[in-house]
Amino acid sequence: MTHGGFPSDAGPRIAIVALACAALLIIPRSASLGAILATGFFGGAIIALFRVGEGGSPLQLICLALS
Rank of each mutant, 00 (worst) to 15 (best):
A35K: 13
S30D: 01
L24F: 14
L19Q: 13
A18C: 03
G55T: 05
S32N: 11
R13T: 15
L59R: 05
G4L: 02
G44I: 01
R13N: 11
D9G: 06
F42W: 12
I36G: 09
A15E: 14
A20M: 05
L19W: 14
I62H: 10
S57K: 13
R29H: 07
E54S: 07
V52Q: 14
A15C: 08
I36T: 14
S30G: 04
I16G: 01
G43C: 12
G4W: 08
G40K: 09
I62S: 07
I14N: 07
G4I: 00
G5S: 04
L59G: 02
H3G: 02
G43L: 05
A10V: 06
Q60Y: 07
T39P: 00
V52R: 15
I26A: 08
F6T: 03
S67H: 07
I62N: 03
I47S: 08
M1W: 13
A38R: 14
G55W: 12
I36K: 15
D9H: 12
I16K: 14
S67W: 05
F50W: 14
F42S: 05
A18I: 03
G4M: 03
F42Q: 04
S30L: 10
L33A: 12
P58D: 04
I14W: 14
G44S: 13
A15P: 00
L49H: 12
Q60V: 00
G5I: 00
L37F: 15
A20Y: 09
R13F: 15
F41M: 11
M1S: 13
G55D: 10
T39Y: 06
A35V: 01
F41C: 06
G53D: 07
A65H: 04
P12C: 06
I14K: 11
I16D: 09
T39R: 12
A48S: 06
G56S: 09
A65R: 08
A65Q: 03
I27C: 04
A35W: 10
G11W: 14
L61F: 11
F41E: 07
F50G: 02
A45N: 07
I26W: 13
F42P: 00
L66K: 09
A23Y: 11
A31Q: 12
F6M: 04
G40C: 10
D9N: 13
L25H: 04
R51F: 02
D9M: 04
I27W: 13
T39N: 10
A31C: 09
M1N: 12
P28E: 01
P58S: 05
A45C: 03
G55V: 02
G11M: 08
A20K: 06
L19A: 12
A45H: 12
P28T: 05
G40R: 13
I36R: 15
L64V: 01
G44L: 07
L37S: 14
S8Y: 04
S8M: 01
H3W: 05
H3L: 02
L49P: 00
